[in-house]
């Protein structure tokens, strides 16, 4: 029942995104970025299921985005750049994950933060390679062999992002229902029991970590191919904080939450910035505070309440 319910809502959400993008073309950019961030937040959600918060997942977003920026001059096609960026992030996720899954809670969060800040510092420091804060421009790539003009290209990337988002959401749902996914919940409640059953908690967490890195990688690649300019800021700790922010805003209950959260976040930011250029952080912060204080389930929780169902 819930699965069907979710599928209908997902379809409605995708349709709403496409309709909004069609009516106001300037939203294409923002909605693509929001969808990409939603995919990254989906990965955060898997870790949250295990009670672990990464305050450094912007590392994988930035790593993938820079992979795309560096490869773009030689392999200038979305069909190559997107998987390569995502896989590069996944590989990094395997290396970093092998180290950080030994830690829990605050140490887990801090180590992720520290490692992401190391990468951020390197992006700034290695000026001759990365152009520091100036960043690197990504020229307009081909789309599966087709050279599209800008407007068609932007549509193509948005649709690609939506397809990936749906695929990732479906996957996340299946994964969370699988024994590996159930293992995650066990880490949160009573990790030792998992070990008594002969299941390696580290392995369970590592698999979720690698998947979350892959999802962050997809997000990074899409962001790089949408903004077509990457800067170290993508990997700063506040960018990681933003992803966790979106996870809570959207609601950690279902796989649609991250996308609701991401779209709401981007729109609130744009409109807050447009109306109160000096105080958009204040508005975002207050929104977050209100959600946590008065709407624990996030936007997804509100949706469930409105439609009279419970997750």
């Amino acid at each position: 029942m819930i699965a069907k319910h979710e599928a209908v809502l997902a379809a409605l959400l995708v349709a709403a995104v496409l309709a909004a993008a069609a009516v106001s073309p300037w939203l294409i950019f923002i909605l693509t970025i929001a969808t990409a961030k939603g995919i990254a937040v989906l990965g955060i959600l898997l870790l949250l299921r295990a009670g672990q918060v990464s305050f450094g997942h912007a590392l994988f977003v930035a790593f993938s985005a820079y992979t795309v920026a560096f490869l773009a001059p030689v392999l200038n096609d979305v069909a190559l750049l997107l998987p390569l960026g995502a896989l590069a992030a996944m590989a990094l996720g395997l290396v970093v994950g092998a180290f950080v899954v030994r830690y829990r809670e605050i140490f887990f969060g801090m180590l992720n933060l520290a490692l992401s800040m190391v990468f951020y510092s390197l992006l700034e420091k290695l000026y001759t390679i990365t152009h520091g804060t100036d960043g690197i421009r990504v020229s307009l790539p081909r789309f599966f062999g087709m050279a599209l003009e800008r407007h068609a290209y932007e549509w193509a990337v948005l649709v690609t992002a939506l397809v990936l988002a749906v695929a990732c959401a479906v996957f996340a749902r299946i994964y969370l229902a699988s024994p590996m996914g159930q293992g995650l919940s066990a880490i949160k409640t009573r990790e030792a029991r998992l070990e008594f059953m002969g299941v390696s908690a580290r392995l369970v967490l590592l698999s979720a970590y690698v998947i979350s890195a892959l999802m962050a990688g997809m997000a990074g690649a899409i962001i790089a191919m949408t903004s077509r300019h990457v800067t170290p800021h993508l990997g700063y700790w506040t960018a990681s904080g933003e992803l966790v922010f979106i996870a809570i805003l959207g609601g950690a209950g279902g796989v649609i939450g991250p996308f609701l959260g991401a779209i709401a976040f981007e729109l609130v930011r744009v409109y807050a910035a447009a109306s109160f250029a000096d105080a958009w952080q204040l508005i975002l912060g207050t929104t977050l505070l209100l959600v946590i204080m008065f709407a624990r389930g996030g936007l997804w929780g509100l949706v469930l309440k409105l439609t009279g169902r419970r997750a």
């Binding site: 106001s24 970025i33 962001i223 300019h229 930011r269 910035a273 447009a274 000096d278």
Partner: peptide
């Protein structure tokens, strides 16, 4: 518009301004 939040935000703002 504020370019403080970073390039990605600013690019979105440029599109909003123009389109």
């Amino acid at each position: 518009v504020d370019e403080g939040p970073g390039v990605e935000h600013t690019l979105g703002e440029i599109r909003r301004l123009v389109q």
